[in-house]
Amino acid sequence: MQLRRWEPTVLPLLTALAVLAVWEIGVRVSGTKVFPSPAEVGRGLEELLRKGLLWRYTADSLLRVGSGYLLAILVGIPLGLALGWYPLAARAANPLIQMLRPISPLAWIPVAIVLFGVGNESAVFLIFLASFFPILVSTMTGVRGVPPMFRLAGANFGLSIAALLRRVVFPAALPHMIVGLRIALGIAWLVVVAAEMIAVDSGLGYLVIDSRNAGKRYDLVIAGMILIGLIGLGLDIGMRRLERLKSVRWGFLND
């Protein structure tokens, strides 16, 4: 089945058109007053842009994700390296990790509110929790998966433990860790939307829930969803770019 030259660009466009057409027809045929047509969503986006809300909400959401995620990296990676390196410490910590990890980050919302009140800190705390465990666990398993050969070679050249961790174990575990980082970022993006629906009054999650509650502005709801999707896609593509760096890519080649 040889693909023709035009197919890679034209086929997705056709799909997009088909989706928009079905949507438009669906709205017209059902005669709904609530659910917006594609054009109305476009106008909604434009309205957000005009009021300056688009940038502010996007920036707010990204800032929350950024700080919580960064915090999780700063704590999760060193801790994961240490736990991966000392099997005894890992065995001691593992029951606690396995217990806390499957608790939905959203189940922490009430606790977050008690600890930090309604506001930014709560949201950042939730994102921290949501990304911390995937990062910690992927670092740990990454370190444990480092071929013993690499450690021995490093030790052979007279490296101290700190140097061995920095120069051998960390880069050897990095491909595995990057996958964890990408998954963590995806979950963080999912959680920020939820956190903003409940705990704060700005950001894209707030936009979606507020547009519904205050006047059933479903055009803005869907505009918000599209923004969430596009930014999430951008984050994922960025992380996949990282996976292609030469110093990491070796871990994904299966030769």
């Binding site: 690499f150 021995l152 070679a153 110093s247």
Partner: peptide, 20 residues
């Protein structure tokens, strides 16, 4: 008593560091 940089081990499998 342990490995020493005065004598270096060359590995059976490829021991070069793929990230360097």
């Amino acid at each position: 008593t342990g490995p020493d940089p005065r004598r270096i081990f060359v590995f059976q499998e490829r021991g070069v560091f793929p990230w360097l």
